[in-house]
């Protein structure tokens, strides 16, 4: 009998842990019930199936051996079902899919990681990988925009990243009375990041409007468009480039993305309803 293809047939994983991060967001830690999926590269995604409800694309927010961690916000039927799962429940997982983040090959390059809201989760494996190889890179800045202080993800990671030598800055749209940090849009934080524009690379994930504004600001500051990577999203469905639901012009984002360069993305994002 031929083994089932993990890109087509969901592989059973069991929820090993669930940690609430915000009122509507939780981390689900998944362990394979038997066979595990191939390793995911940072930025690649899985299709995670809540049995009896449906499946959705989810980037990994962490990977530890065969153990997968997804950060899920409850917004629709499937994500609500997954968000509400407790340890011991079984889900189906397909993947890995797509093209992930590509850190620069040139040693000493300054890195800018810019995250908006839940966009920090898909960037988390990249930051961890970069900091695990810290001497290879120049200055590393992680700039985070979030709605409120209570919506901030990865709070322990942020401390760890600072301790590992990254400059991490956080700004919020809506502060509470206890917030002593920055208030404003994430592009304002670019003023804090020290980088050599001709020797830097940027990685963006968040709402598309935020990524467009950030990419344009980075280009204005001298970064080459092909050195800016962003994670795009359309309606991923099959994950294998067959159904066409995630088409963005000539790209099928489940196969050719979700990470694409700004030089490829900019003309496509200017076309409405594309």
């Amino acid at each position: 009998m031929t083994a089932a293809r993990p890109d087509l047939v969901p592989v059973p994983y069991r929820v090993a842990a669930r940690t609430a991060r915000t009122p509507d967001t939780a981390d689900l830690v998944l362990d394979p019930v038997a066979d595990a999926l191939p390793p995911f590269a940072p930025g690649q995604f899985a299709m995670v199936y809540a049995f009896g409800v449906g499946d959705i694309p989810l980037s990994l927010s962490a990977q530890d051996g065969h153990r997968l961690t997804h950060t899920i916000r409850a917004v629709g039927a499937v994500s609500r079902a997954l968000h509400g799962l407790w340890p011991g429940t079984t889900v189906g997982v397909r993947g890995p899919f797509g093209i992930g983040w590509e850190p620069p090959a040139v040693e000493g390059t300054d890195l800018l990681v810019v995250a908006g809201g839940l966009g920090l989760a898909p960037l988390r494996p990249l930051v961890r990988a970069v900091l695990a190889a810290r001497p290879r890179y120049g200055r590393v800045a992680v700039l985070i925009g979030t709605r409120t202080p209570g919506d901030l993800l990865c709070t322990q990671d942020i401390e760890d990243w600072r301790a590992a030598g990254a400059r991490v800055e956080v700004t919020v749209d809506r502060p509470d009375n206890a917030w002593q940090g920055d208030v404003g849009v994430v592009t304002d934080l670019l003023d804090r990041a020290e980088f050599a524009p001709r020797n830097a690379a940027a990685f963006l994930c968040g709402p598309e409007v935020m990524m467009r504004a950030t990419a344009r600001e980075l280009v204005r500051r001298g970064l080459a468009p092909d050195r800016i990577q962003l994670s795009l999203e359309r309606t991923m469905h099959c994950g294998t480039g067959h159904c066409g639901h995630c088409q963005l012009g000539p790209l099928l984002l489940c196969r050719d993305g979700p990470v694409v360069s700004w030089s490829h993305a900019e003309p496509l994002l200017l076309v409405r309803e594309l």
């Binding site: 950060t71 916000r73 749209d173 404003g184 849009v185 968040g206 409007v209 994670s231």
Partner: peptide
């Protein structure tokens, strides 16, 4: 002004509307 207008959009998600979810938490 540009920043204020972007913040008016409440891009990171508001109750009662469909927030951006990223590949890390896509709808539905």
């Amino acid at each position: 002004l540009r920043a204020a207008r972007l913040r008016l959009l409440d891009l990171y998600g508001a109750p009662g509307r469909e927030p951006w979810t990223g590949a890390a938490g896509a709808a539905p």
